[in-house]
């Protein structure tokens, strides 16, 4: 099943199970159905529970808060993270605060689905990840799945969590295939997944970077280097036990991220490991993030902007102090660098 179908499946399971689950946002019932993720929802659950919205992101988010106070679980959908920035007031000042600010009496169970863009010239305002912003806010939970199974299990868990959850889907993951469990199955928030095992290096990753990390881990395994790949799945709460116990074993840490480095989830992971595990690291920790810049549009400028599996191998090399071959890995990508695969020909 495709990642996008797994999202769709989770939506159906949740909406069948609980008539108080709603789904709305710009285009949820349009012909494209949010990259297929809201397919069939309006047909099955009707226009009272599945509906389009005016371009009014901030109010829409506040509406979700209000409906939540009266018992409804809204799944709000936005085709890009960037469009949702208009709603930061309601997310941060209402949704994230409500439970705490009113003495723990009520809570705001909402799920905000946001799509992270990349490639095809999405450029400065259509490709920001910003999970590190969201993770900065006490009261929010921040989820970013990598594979179809996790997408389904985590979305179901998010919808039925009693708190506001920001659920980030990378556009390049939507078409990836994977096995998906049937029915109502959930994956707890705050539990990482060990996606690859090895004793030499700990790679902590999330979202699309985990795909790159897994290619790299397989590639260096053939050269005798073992990597743990910890796919965080949620960045708030963050599974510190998984990170610490792996680093204790490997003594080497590489953090991958799909955002800028400054004040980020990657900074936090390296800080916590440095503070709480003195003497464990055999080499200075490394991270691969996006450059500390806005994202450009021209394919000529994006060509090497995004670190990939080759760069991951490079970082592993420097952690273990040994040259590793990476060119054959980089040569495997036969399609243009700015699309997720040959199936994509724009424009959005």
């Amino acid at each position: 099943m495709k990642f996008s179908d797994a999202i769709n499946d989770a939506m159906k399971v949740a909406m069948r199970q609980d008539p108080k689950v709603l789904c709305y946002g710009l285009g949820v019932d349009d012909p494209k159905r949010i990259f297929g993720t809201t397919e069939g929802l309006i047909e099955e659950f009707g226009p009272d529970r599945v509906f389009d919205m005016p371009t009014a992101e901030n109010a829409m988010t506040g509406v979700a808060v209000g409906a939540a106070l009266a018992g409804y679980r809204s799944v709000c959908v936005h085709q890009r993270v960037d469009f949702f920035l208009l709603a930061m007031d309601q997310l941060v000042n209402s949704a994230a605060k409500w439970h705490y600010m009113f003495g723990g009496q009520n809570s705001v169970p909402i799920t905000i689905r946001l799509v992270i863009g990349r490639g095809w010239g999405q450029g400065p305002t259509h490709s920001q990840a910003l999970h590190s912003w969201f993770a900065h806010i006490p009261g929010l939970k921040v989820v970013m799945p990598t594979n179809a199974e996790d997408a389904k299990g985590l979305l179901l868990e998010s919808i039925f969590d009693n708190n506001p959850v920001v659920f980030l889907e990378h556009r390049w993951l939507h078409n990836m295939e994977g096995e998906v469990s049937e029915g109502d199955f959930r994956i707890p928030l705050g539990k990482a997944r060990l996606a690859h095992q090895g004793d030499d290096v700990t790679i902590v990753s999330n979202s699309f970077m985990t795909v790159e990390a897994l290619h790299a881990a397989e590639h260096v395994k053939a050269q005798g280097v073992g990597c743990d790949v910890i796919d965080l799945r949620t960045v708030r709460p963050l599974d510190w036990d998984a990170v610490f116990s792996s680093v204790k074993r490997t003594g080497r840490l590489l953090v991958l991220d799909i955002g800028a480095p400054m004040a980020s989830v990657s900074s936090e992971i390296i800080a916590r490991v440095a503070m709480e595990m003195p003497g464990v690291l055999k080499a200075p920790p490394q991270r691969l993030c996006l450059p500390d810049h806005s994202q450009p549009t021209s394919p000529a400028l994006t060509k090497n902007f995004y670190p990939g599996s080759g760069e991951v191998v490079g970082a592993i090399s420097s952690l273990i102090g040994r040259d590793l071959e990476k060119e054959s890995l980089q040569a495997q990508q036969t399609w243009a660098h700015d699309v997720p695969g040959t199936w994509f020909n724009g424009p959005f």
């Binding site: 010239g121 549009t297 400028l301």
Partner: peptide
């Protein structure tokens, strides 16, 4: 925009 913005900028 020197290629940094594309059609939308």
């Amino acid at each position: 925009s020197r290629g940094r913005g594309g059609s939308m900028h």
